[in-house]
Design a protein around this nucleic acid. Structure first.
Lengths: 193, 193
DNA sequence: CGTATTTCTTAAGATAGTTCATTGGTCGTA
DNA sequence: TACGACCAATGAACTATCTTAAGAAATACG
């Protein structure tokens, strides 16, 4: 029932005083969600920045043929949110689903804006966080345009060993942009080499 | 010789007072670069945030086979920089090259940190800018994992009509993650349909 | 203006990745 | 215990994309 994990997260960037922690306390909601629960669905506006304390989420889009494509996974001590929908206040085209039972801390739009105003350094912290995530994404784009599926799979295993063990292969295939069948073949090739 | 385009850019987010503009003036460098000039090369640390006033740049990586892969293009009124290298102060793995004669405004590391300290709202502005760019990149990742080369090419033309006319197809192919030959085939298919 | 260089196109054969149908294993739950 | 849901694996046929090589067209530059 504590927001301590979030405070720890912020304080790994800049220290907070007691007043700031209290402000935060009043604007953060604690929640548990079951496996398969959606904290965001297509057509709805993304109302929260969600900080994952425990568990695992995937963000995905559904194409015109009904196929799901995993855009990202989020585990403990990281953020997940459709930033575009959140800031524009427009309906999202994405889904965010718990793929393990999870514990989360959520901040609503107006609360986040309140916090930005009353804890200015939050702007700096979030700027740094988003910059880091931008770099991560840019590396993923580079992978996507420059590597084969096999290379991408090996890189994924190396970069996210935990996820790679925690997730069903079908979810990983979707993240890599290949079919589960082809991933299965790649795994076979790797094993017999 | 003026930094006005940069001020206009910032003020499209939040207004600046005279003092803030002067601070900025003192920390921004104006530069012209020729076509083919590299403002960043692999092995060197990225020392600047670069704001493009005129012209066009590409950021690319070179793989182990010597092939170049375009990560992004930047035209007027936008930023380009290897954020990862810039903040970590480590050698970059990327190149940034002018593909048209260009005019740029640059801010060095210590100057940017100075400005963040003395113009706190810059944190907010840059946070918002990077968030927007993050969303853009995320959409590109989704494209990459969910669409065929043809779909990606059509989407590129639609999203960046200007770039699409300004750039040689070989550069576009590299950005899409396909060979120039295959792009040529796609163009033929489109034309004859 | 002419020449060098870059860019675009074409096509054939090779490789990477998909689709579809099927099978067997594992796990939660009635 | 059995059932259904989900997941992993497989093979064959199909499609997308790459590789290589060559010539044609466009553009840069002296």
């Amino acid at each position: 029932m504590t927001i301590q994990p979030l405070i720890d997260h912020f304080e790994s960037y800049l220290p907070f005083d007691e007043n700031e922690k209290e402000l935060l306390q009043g604007r953060v909601t604690h929640r548990s969600v079951k496996r398969r629960y959606f904290i965001l669905q297509e057509g709805f506006t993304c109302k929260h920045y969600t900080f994952v304390v425990e568990g695992c989420f995937r963000m995905f889009a559904v194409d015109t043929k009904g196929n799901e494509h995993n855009i990202k996974f989020t585990i403990e001590n990281d953020w997940i949110s459709d930033i575009g929908s959140f800031h524009s206040d427009k309906p999202s085209k994405l889904y965010i689903e718990a793929i393990e039972p999870a514990v989360i801390l959520q901040i609503e739009q107006q609360d986040l804006y309140f916090l930005y105003t009353h804890i200015p350094k939050l702007n700096q912290i979030l700027r740094v966080i988003v910059e880091d995530k931008y770099v991560e994404l840019q590396n993923r784009v580079l992978q996507n345009i420059s590597s084969t599926a096999l290379e991408r799979y090996l890189a994924f295993q190396e970069q996210y060993p935990t996820l790679s063990r925690r997730l069903p292969n079908t979810q990983i295939a979707s993240y890599l942009g290949i079919t589960p069948e082809f991933l299965s073949k790649l795994r076979k090739d790797i094993a017999s080499s």
